[in-house]
């Protein structure tokens, strides 16, 4: 199969970028989207030009490195998968495919399709942890966690920190990412002592990074490759309100 690609090329943060067209021929529908970019990059590199830069690592949908907005959708047309797990069979032969980086002021562009998502690390750093040092905590089974609760916490913890929620949100809001971590830790009994400070600190940092507010469109949930539920945002709102009221 064949595709016509319109790819955002930008040398670095200081140079303006533009779309460049590439023709990708002799493709196989079983190729992953990134393998298609590999093939295009091989052709570009063979001409001595700089290949398209894009973030990727595990290529099995778990590291959260790959990004890209494909035809206007973060991680492409297929639901609940990352770009690296998008296969060409999701596209029509001969179609034009527009590939852009994730766009948000909180994710400054680095080069081509690569953006800087360290804002997420700083949000976790503000409070996304349980403050237990390495040592000899009590036996793991001394604190039973009801299975439904553990499962719900796991649903939230499945977030891979890719930033698609921000990319899809009309306000570039990071609520789903932050809510997933707040919920994961605040649901578990281990996370209760820091429940309030965690919610306050992480939300403060989120605001500082310049992400927008939630307009409850739930487009974040729709594009999330791990299918994280938008109801965790309600959970975080609840925790935040509670924390505000209890810690005036």
């Amino acid at each position: 199969m064949k595709l016509k690609l319109r790819v955002w090329r930008q040398k670095n943060a200081h140079t303006p970028g533009q779309f460049v067209e590439y023709h990708a021929d002799n493709l196989n529908p079983n190729m992953s989207f990134l393998e298609m970019l590999d093939v295009v990059n091989e052709q570009i590199a063979a001409k001595g030009e700089e290949p398209i830069a894009f973030d990727h690592d595990c290529r099995e949908g778990i590291c959260g490195a790959c990004s890209c907005v494909i035809n206007g959708e973060p991680h492409g047309p297929h639901d609940k998968v990352t770009t690296c797990q998008t296969y060409l069979r999701s596209f029509q032969d001969g179609a034009t495919v527009t590939i852009e980086p994730f766009r948000a002021n909180a994710f400054p562009l680095i080069k081509d399709l690569v953006v800087d998502r360290t804002a997420f690390d700083r949000i976790i750093q503000a409070g996304g942890y349980i403050s237990v040092g390495t040592g000899h905590p009590p036996d793991a089974n001394s604190l039973p966690v009801p299975k439904p609760l553990a499962d719900l916490a796991m649903d939230a913890a499945a977030c891979i920190g890719c930033g698609a929620c921000v990319a899809a949100c009309k306000n570039a809001s990071a609520m789903l990412f932050v809510a997933a971590k707040v919920s994961h830790l605040n649901l578990l009994p281990q996370g209760q002592p820091e429940r309030d400070v965690r919610a306050l600190a992480m939300v403060d940092q989120m605001d500082k990074e310049g992400f927008g507010a939630c307009t409850v469109t739930l487009s974040c949930q729709a594009v999330c490759p791990k299918g994280i539920s938008g109801s965790f945002i309600a959970k975080m709102n609840r925790d935040f309100l509670r924390a505000m009221l209890l810690n005036p």
Binding site: Y129, I130, V132, T134, G135, H136, P137, P138, D139, A140, N141, L143, P144, V145, P146, K147, A150, A153, M154, A157, H184, L185, L188, Q190, G191
Partner: peptide, 21 residues
């Protein structure tokens, strides 16, 4: 010790209905 440590950190290990690992 690793399991104890990770459980204390909030790693959501799979559990039985009893709440045990």
């Amino acid at each position: 010790n690793i399991i104890d440590q990770c459980a204390a950190q909030g790693v959501p290990f799979a559990r039985e209905y009893s709440g045990y690992l």
